[in-house]
């Protein structure tokens, strides 16, 4: 797969403050990448640099092979964008808003695609007729998602897409991403604070902190590398020693249970507990949240 988004040493200073520091990153075509980081870490700065809304102090970025600075128009032809702080024209109706943004885009939105998105996000004719100033934050957000995806862009850049959405609509968003992934023609680069959602929808994550990229991993690699938490419950009392196996760390131990972190396969542990009065074994996979929190703890 070729990379469709590429940042190379991308740096942005705001006066004396460094907003982004030498970001080098690639997103492969068709990939869904979550871009994670705490508030003020440089996520939105990165996105705005990709869109040529702000100019880099150093470094470069490209989308679809087009330099985001020098060939910005060609690059922006490929993008569907949902801003984090969604600006609206309060006096416009929902349908006028979509129509206006559709006319400014590179490709006219396909009516079927628009209708499909409107149905999925439960935006009916009544909502489309209302002025944006009268709509809730969540409804505006849904219109924003529709406007970003309605022209079936090659690259969707979504800044906090589910902020303000109710659980049903978060589900609808996840389904939309799954469809995009299935179709394989849209690369998605989304920033989010909701790690469970990123874990459920993304192929990979990039983690940024204080303007610096601290990790880029596929979710599969993260899950493979993280230990699992295994709790072994015993039915009878007794002093049992935890087997000394590579990849096992004892978190806590008493007569009734062991709490272990196990990296690698579980087979050797299961073999060693055979014959012991085991009443239950609970295996928990570590979540993306654990990974990100560990990453922050390591770097701080």
């Amino acid at each position: 797969m070729a990379s469709i988004i590429r940042a190379d040493g991308l740096t942005k200073d705001y006066g004396r403050i460094r907003g982004l520091d030498s970001l080098t990153l690639e997103v492969q075509e068709g990939e869904v990448m979550g871009f994670l980081g705490p508030n003020g870490s440089g996520k939105t700065t990165t996105i705005r640099l990709l869109l040529d809304l702000i100019r880099p102090t150093r470094g470069s970025a490209a989308i679809g092979g087009f330099d985001c600075r020098r060939q910005s128009l060609q690059a922006r032809r490929l993008i569907g964008y949902l801003p984090g702080e969604m600006p609206v024209y309060p006096e416009l109706s929902g349908s006028a808003y979509l129509s206006y943004l559709g006319r400014l885009g590179a490709e006219a939105p396909e009516p079927d695609a628009v209708q499909g998105l409107l149905r999925r996000f439960d935006i009916g004719p009544a909502e489309l007729k209302r002025r944006l100033r009268d709509l809730s934050h969540g409804m505006k957000r849904k219109l924003g998602i529709v406007s970003a995806l309605m022209a079936r862009p090659k690259v969707a850049i979504l800044d906090e897409p589910t902020s303000g959405l109710d659980p049903l609509m978060i589900e609808a968003f996840a389904e939309t991403l799954a469809d995009l992934k299935r179709e394989g023609r849209t690369t998605v680069f989304l920033s989010s604070h909701v790690l469970s959602e990123v874990e459920a929808t993304c192929d990979s994550v990039a983690v940024i902190r204080d303007g610096r990229l601290v990790a880029v991993e596929t979710l599969a690699a993260i899950h493979g590398a993280l230990p699992r938490r295994v709790t072994v419950h015993f039915s009878g009392a007794g002093d049992r020693s935890v087997p000394d196996l590579p990849g096992i760390r004892v978190v806590s131990r008493d007569a009734a249970r062991w709490v272990l972190e196990v990296a690698g396969p579980l087979g050797p542990l299961l073999e060693r507990v055979q014959g012991l009065p085991v009443s239950d074994i609970d295996v928990q996979r570590f979540s993306l949240e654990d990974y990100v929190l560990r990453l922050y703890a390591d770097r701080s």
Binding site: R48, L51, D52, L53, L73, Q74, R76, R77, I79, Y81, P83, E85, P87, Y89, L101, L104, G105, A106, S147
Partner: peptide, 14 residues
């Protein structure tokens, strides 16, 4: 001020 360029100039508008 109102962030409207995030809508307009995210599209291929010079």
């Amino acid at each position: 001020e109102w962030g409207l360029f995030d809508l307009e100039l995210a599209r291929p508008i010079p």
